[in-house]
Design a protein around this nucleic acid. Structure first.
Lengths: 295, 295
DNA sequence: CGACACCATAAATATAAATTATCAGAATGA
DNA sequence: TCATTCTGATAATTTATATTTATGGTGTCG
């Protein structure tokens, strides 16, 4: 890319149409202006001036370069302005969370965007492991996870919890034998969730997920409970996922003797403080999660 | 403005997130990368990296700079492309001519623009002197004039002519005494035109415009002939202006014993060859002017 | 705990840009 | 018409800038 001071010189030459006066205005010497123009011509590979002795006119390329140079300087100016103006009610926010939470959170984000159109949101529904990986890589800036991440590069804050629900087809009881017969509907976090719930509520019978027949796998949050509602199997999902299921009355939630709370952590890079624009989002999401617990 | 090579380095750092590897990829040394980043930070007045020992993350300003730098490079690339691609069927064409011709020419330009939307036209209707001045200053690139300009910076080519018409109210004869009684309706080129026509057709009686009463002055081409149509005075305009007058049947054109042809010259800067994009325009206008003569 | 990987800093060197000095052509004015 | 002034181009020199080399400190991993 060309040295911008050459462009500045050329812009001034466009105004004065006079080498010597250009030099004076820019506090340089006349040969400097000549050399700048020559550099620009070498760079573009085209003459910028029709020269006729000491007279000159701008060529087509010259006129175009004037336009371009000015646009580059304007772009720089507006960039510097935007850097110095801290944008707290706008900007690109990149988040990721579980599918169940995503269904609840997305409307909140849209509300914000409607009120403050300078916001732009990317919300990804993804499994825990993916979220953690993407936070570490910087693809997303703020994740919501339930796992505690053992990584010095990651910082986490507990802000709420989501109860894990054992969901069975309508009218089915929660006996171990029934569950074993039904079989398990798996999803990206299925093994982790099921292990947590079954090991503490069926500690006598449960001895590992490998012994339960897996009846299917689905990674669309809206669809995990469909096979359950049709009597095909049982599964374990966060309460938020069950609440978000449109046919929630066609499945039953088995009351658990020892409920399992799934903690919710804000998860982001430790060394990179979250930009201010996340403040409002965090506040709204925490409110939403608290209201879930009260139901 | 900042040296672009710093930006290039920063872009590479954005890709590698690694000083040493950035240096290798750009065939420079590691301290060079550090110094480039430092220069950029001094320039912006904000840190670009959250540093933590040898680890780092981009700050908000850093992310913004990455975006900006890439957009600057893209802009430069597309500029260079556009310079090397000769645009013959598009671009900004700046023309000026008399009002009468403007009325005829403007539809031609709009036809062209409809077919080739990359064109952009500025057509100014102006008096001769204005046209010449603006061609010299570069405000317009191509003018149509009737005068021969004695100026080494201007180049002209004869391409047609427009007949000057002595226009009187309907039913009025062209006797000198009648004209003198009617009085003159003046316009920007009125004295010049009238002097040319009257001195060669009324050479016995005519002895200067000062002796004719001036009944009005108007610089809108569509309105010059209105006072004439109402019997208020006579005037002299190019045939193109009379043809363009919507009430042309409400005025009479006096047949002249010695018709006066107004030459039409393409007028532009001598040292600045007309860009190719004017080719089609010139062709169309010349055709139009020739068809005027045949009427 | 030692070896290595990584980035920062300072000094030295290399590169690039500015100025000075000078020339040549064109406009200006007596 | 001819000297004078004004303007821009070029070459050589100086100055400024950027890059590299050398080195140091810190964190990481086996």
């Amino acid at each position: 890319m060309i040295h911008p001071s050459y462009l500045r010189t050329f812009i001034e030459l466009g105004k004065t149409k006079h080498f010597t006066r250009t030099a004076e205005n820019l506090y340089m010497t006349q040969p400097g202006v000549s050399q700048h123009v020559k550099k620009l011509e070498q760079w573009l590979g085209k003459p910028l001036l029709h020269r006729d002795g000491k007279q000159f006119e701008f060529t087509e390329a010259g006129e175009m370069l004037l336009q371009f140079a000015q646009s580059q300087f304007r772009a720089e100016q507006s960039f510097r302005d935007s850097v110095h103006y801290q944008q707290t009610l706008g900007g690109h926010c990149k988040l990721a969370c579980s599918g169940g939470l995503a269904l609840q959170i997305y409307p909140l984000l849209l509300d914000i965007q409607q009120r403050y159109p300078d916001f732009r949101f990317s919300l990804e529904a993804a499994p825990e492991r993916t979220i953690i990986r993407e936070v570490k890589s910087g693809e997303i800036e703020l994740g919501i996870t339930s796992e505690v991440v053992q990584d010095a590069a990651i910082s986490q804050q507990l802000f709420g919890s989501d109860e894990l629900c054992l969901v069975v087809p309508q009218g089915v009881n929660g006996d171990w034998s029934t569950l074993k017969e039904l079989g398990f509907i798996n999803h990206p976090d299925g093994y982790q969730f099921a292990t947590a719930v079954l090991s503490s509520n069926y500690f006598k019978e449960f001895s590992g997920m490998e012994l339960l027949p897996e009846r299917g796998f689905i990674n669309q949050i809206g669809q995990i409970l469909i096979p359950v509602s049709r009597g095909i199997g049982f599964t374990v999902v966060p309460r938020s996922a069950w609440q978000a299921f449109e046919l929630s009355e066609q499945v039953d939630v088995v009351p658990l003797s020892s409920p399992v709370q799934q903690p919710l952590y804000w998860t982001h890079k430790r060394r990179k403080p979250l930009p201010q624009r996340y403040e409002m989002i965090i506040e709204k999401i925490e409110l939403q999660v608290q209201s879930n617990l009260e139901k």
